[in-house]
């Protein structure tokens, strides 16, 4: 295996060029600016730092942001897979339009999405008024936040799974069927394992995006401290009081959290990938 890899490195061209460009561009656009954030948060003394991020309201907002992003990510993983499957495998009228709709959440400014969603799910909105009699409140509760995050994250899962499913080698599937595997079994044993990497990627992205989302959430969350106040809102609150250092501290924690989660998922994915390839 290692011998093979070593050979690969020699065979394919462009390693230095592409990694060089990647790392340089990454540093310029992402790493150096983010480093500035970390440096800024170091304006605070360790005590101030700690008291900023251990404040009960800040902790509650972290918990809320993480939980709602997790729920939204999971929902998106299930329905994203379903949507990608339906779009790739089945024919139905209006498919092209549905396909186009998927990307809408990217294109719609988040503020507009928030306004539209809160209008729909508010107690006097189209859906909100239907749920009201059952005592279900969506807008201004964590459910509302989750819905906004689902909206934001839909395209991530669909768009990562779709191309892989499209390029999926029908031969393998055919072989499985010929060997007598049932449909569900084929799906589980042959198709799903191939889809695990893109699914995980999609989930990770939807989740990570959810943690930081601000524009669409503030309209539907109600922003009640300790209950529906998300972490990015607290960052804005700190900035509003000209507390750059504190804002940076809250942001750095958020950043490290999502970085670690993303890293974990990427490692998991690579590991499952490798297992798949060697199996």
């Amino acid at each position: 295996m290692t011998a093979l890899i070593r050979k690969k490195r020699r065979v394919l061209p462009g390693f230095r060029l592409t990694t060089g460009i990647t790392v340089t561009y990454l540093s310029l656009i992402v790493l150096i600016p983010l480093a500035a954030l970390v440096v800024k948060s170091a304006d605070l003394s360790p005590d101030q730092w700690w008291s900023t991020i251990s404040n009960p309201r800040v902790v509650a907002s972290y918990r809320l942001s993480l939980l709602t992003a997790l729920c939204a990510g999971l929902v998106n993983m299930v329905f994203g897979l379903l949507l990608a499957w339906v779009l790739v495998r089945y024919k139905f009228p209006g498919k092209a339009i549905v396909d186009g709709l998927i990307d809408l959440p990217f294109a719609l400014p988040t503020a507009v999405a928030g306004i539209a969603l809160s209008a729909i799910y508010a107690p006097n909105g189209w859906v909100g008024s239907l749920l009201e009699p059952f005592g279900i409140k969506v807008a201004y509760t964590p459910i509302g936040i989750t819905i906004a995050l689902i909206f934001i994250g839909v395209p991530f899962v669909v768009r990562t799974v779709q191309p892989v499913l499209q390029d999926f080698d029908k031969g393998t599937e055919e072989a499985a069927v010929l060997l007598g595997a049932y449909r569900w079994r084929t799906f589980r044993k042959v198709i799903l394992p191939e889809l695990v990497p893109p699914l995980l990627t999609g989930f990770a992205l939807a989740f990570a995006r959810g943690i930081g989302e601000y524009g669409s959430v503030v309209f539907i969350s109600g922003n009640m401290p300790l209950k529906t106040e998300i972490a990015p809102l607290l960052i804005v609150t700190k900035l509003e009081q000209f507390e750059y250092g504190q804002a940076a501290a809250v942001a750095v924690v958020l950043l490290v959290l999502s970085f670690l989660l993303l890293l974990l998922i990427n490692v998991l994915q690579r590991w499952s990938n490798r297992r798949l390839r060697t199996a």
Partner: peptide, 16 residues
């Protein structure tokens, strides 16, 4: 509901 800005609060009250 605690909106982040004055206009947001007005909209919550008036529109929603």
């Amino acid at each position: 509901v605690l909106d982040t800005g004055a206009r947001g609060a007005t909209t919550t009250f008036v529109e929603k």
